[in-house]
């Protein structure tokens, strides 16, 4: 069996899939990054290796995506390193042909991708502000002492959601506290929060976008039935949450790897041993000019594997010469 690995390392979760040459998902993993992307990638690779153990397979290609795509690409030896917008679009149009709108809400970012006839025609991504993304929901769930898994279900119990300002997560939080002290029941507050998040998404990321059916909702937050219901209410459209909603980026990366190695003899994959290797990251401030760039070194077993972080590229070049 030929295997293609897709790795999506985001701020909150690290997702991995293995697909076969027909593009079917063989293994899928959803891990928390917990601020340690290198550890998360190694752990993921180890678990994928375990799951595949016993079957006859060969890894033909590896693709990485997500905000730590360069880092994870170096660690595993990726054949392709792609941004998460392209990866999500590739996965959605492959698994759900005919899709015209992809709503994606992840841990730190949210995006909208418009496709027509399988081709991306427009996209948008939230800017610096992470209001209305997964980590904000996480934070509020923790504050209300509700497991994030039950968050969406509670929202559905609400009869009359309260109105919460969704522009800014700091304002939203004070609004929620205010409503809670006024005596509104928790389900109404949570449903109000879901509405606010969706309103914020549609006003910022989805501003001026022509949202057409079929609409797919993916990313970690798609697990939240409350948000999904709020999207359906706001758009007046039916929304599909795909089976692999939480690993779509990784599936996209695997599919991209499959096409990247088409005319390649061998994958650059460093093998499942990478989970055993000693990877270390260190950083220093370059004093070469007033920009004071923070340069990151990635070491493997004491040797420098890669370097980045500079504006001028002089440290990156050192990597090639030795």
């Amino acid at each position: 069996m030929q295997i293609f690995l897709g790795i999506d390392v985001g701020s909150v979760s690290t997702n991995m899939v293995a697909i076969n040459e027909q593009g079917e998902v063989v293994v899928s993993l959803y891990l928390r990054t917990r601020g340690q992307p290198i550890k998360a990638v190694q752990e993921g690779i180890r678990r994928v290796g375990e799951e595949l153990h016993g079957s006859k397979y060969v890894v033909r290609g590896v693709g990485t995506t997500g905000s730590a795509r360069t880092l994870s690409g170096i660690i595993v030896g990726a054949d392709t390193v792609k941004n998460e917008i392209t990866a999500h679009a590739v996965a959605a149009s492959y698994l759900l042909p005919g899709v015209r709108t992809v709503l994606e809400v992840g841990g730190q970012d949210s995006k909208i991708i418009l496709l027509r006839d399988g081709i991306v025609v427009d996209f948008a991504m939230n800017t610096v502000c992470a209001a209305g993304t997964g980590s904000f929901l996480d934070h509020q769930a923790a504050r209300l002492n509700i497991p994030i898994e039950e968050f969406g279900g509670l929202a559905l119990q609400s009869k009359s959601p309260v109105r919460i300002a969704g522009r800014c997560s700091v304002f939203a939080e004070s609004d929620m506290i205010h409503k809670q002290q006024m005596g509104h029941p928790i389900p109404d507050i949570i449903a109000g929060l879901c509405d606010a998040l969706v309103r914020n998404y549609l006003n910022n990321v989805g501003k001026g976008k022509d949202i057409q059916s079929p609409v797919v909702f993916q990313g970690g937050v798609a697990a939240n039935v409350g948000i999904r219901a709020a999207f359906e209410k706001a758009l007046g459209l039916e929304i599909t949450v795909p089976k692999y909603f939480d690993v779509m980026g990784a599936i996209g990366a695997a599919l991209l790897a499959r096409s990247a190695v088409r005319d390649k003899q061998e994958s650059s994959f460093r093998g499942f041993e990478v989970s055993e290797m000693e990877y270390q990251a260190s950083s220093f401030e370059c004093q070469g000019c007033p920009n004071l760039c923070e340069i990151v070194n990635i070491h493997v077993d004491g040797k420098i594997l890669a370097r980045w972080g500079g504006r001028c590229g002089k440290w990156e070049t050192l990597k090639k010469t030795g």
Binding site: N83, E84, I85, T86, V120, F123, M125, V128
Partner: peptide, 13 residues
């Protein structure tokens, strides 16, 4: 990073 992701995605598109 943010600019890079968007620009890369735009060129891919």
């Amino acid at each position: 990073a943010g600019v890079e992701t968007r620009v890369e995605a735009f060129v891919d598109l």
